[in-house]
Simulated scan of single mutants.
Amino acid sequence: MTEKIGIGIQEFDEIREGKCFYIDKTYFIREWWESKDKATLIARPRRFGKTLNMSMLKQFFSVDYEGREDLFEGLSIWEEKEYRQLQGTYPVISLSFANIKEKNFPMKLN
């Protein structure tokens, strides 16, 4: 079966469940986890997959996705037992501004 290209899909589970074409970026999970940074800034141009990557991170770590190994099987992160044991083990708070489309912000001057 030919994979579809999921244009505009920003949720990792939709890409995986819909059998859409996906370039494996799960190595980012390992890279980020091992860096042990206190804060991470992910700055990329528009349409570079920031929201999709954040969705991937959320669905990897969040207890809401515990037991969803089906989303990660066959991807690079799933090759190491250490990371398979991390999947679905943390409470995650996820905020996205992806759907906020304002051209300017009115400022009030006192």
Rank of each mutant, 00 (worst) to 15 (best):
M1L: 12
Q10H: 07
Q10K: 12
Q10E: 10
F12M: 01
D13P: 10
R16Q: 14
R16C: 07
R16H: 05
G18H: 03
D24V: 12
K25Y: 09
K25A: 08
T26I: 06
Y27V: 15
Y27K: 15
Y27F: 12
E31K: 13
W33K: 12
W33G: 01
E34S: 06
E34H: 06
S35T: 11
K36S: 14
D37A: 15
D37H: 15
T40V: 14
T40A: 09
I42D: 10
R44M: 04
R44L: 06
R44C: 09
P45W: 07
R46G: 05
T51P: 04
L52V: 05
L52R: 02
M54I: 06
M56S: 00
K58D: 08
Q59C: 04
F60K: 04
S62E: 02
S62A: 08
Y65H: 11
G67M: 01
E69V: 08
E69K: 09
E69Y: 08
D70T: 07
L71C: 07
L71E: 05
L71Q: 07
F72I: 00
E73F: 01
G74I: 04
L75G: 04
L75H: 02
S76M: 06
I77F: 00
E79H: 06
E80N: 11
K81N: 11
K81D: 15
K81S: 12
K81R: 12
Y83A: 01
Y83D: 01
Y83V: 00
R84S: 02
L86Y: 03
Q87K: 07
G88S: 02
G88I: 03
G88V: 07
S94E: 09
L95W: 05
S96A: 07
F97K: 10
A98K: 11
N99A: 13
N99I: 08
K101F: 03
K101C: 04
K101G: 06
N104K: 11
P106M: 04
M107G: 14
M107T: 15
L109K: 14
